[in-house]
């Protein structure tokens, strides 16, 4: 299954979840948030929220700025 993570194409197993994306990125467990197709997916739903094909996933964290 092809999806877009932070603007880059990735191939994931069928029925991959948001938690699988976090694992692929090696993202830290805190200070991170995820949107799928423009909607925030709460952390509590990461392991159950399945991604549709061609999903656009954004994974953000806080950096120095402002």
């Amino acid at each position: 299954m092809r999806i877009i993570i932070n603007g880059e194409p990735h191939t994931m197993v069928e029925a991959a979840t948001v938690a699988d994306v976090i694992a692929v990125l090696g993202a830290p467990p805190v200070g991170v948030a995820v949107a799928v197709d423009g909607e925030v997916v709460p952390r509590a739903s990461w392991s159950t929220h399945q991604l549709p094909a061609e999903a656009r996933v954004e994974v953000l964290t806080a950096v120095q700025g402002g």
């Binding site: 993570i5 932070n6 603007g7 880059e8 990125l25 993202a27 830290p28 805190v30 200070g31 991170v32 948030a33 954004e58 994974v59 953000l60 964290t61 806080a62 950096v63 120095q64 700025g65 402002g66």
Partner: peptide, 17 residues
Amino acid sequence: TTVAMRRIDAVTGTGVL
């Protein structure tokens, strides 16, 4: 104090937090 939000693959770690 302010922080900005960016895609995680463009940064390393959560040091500022």
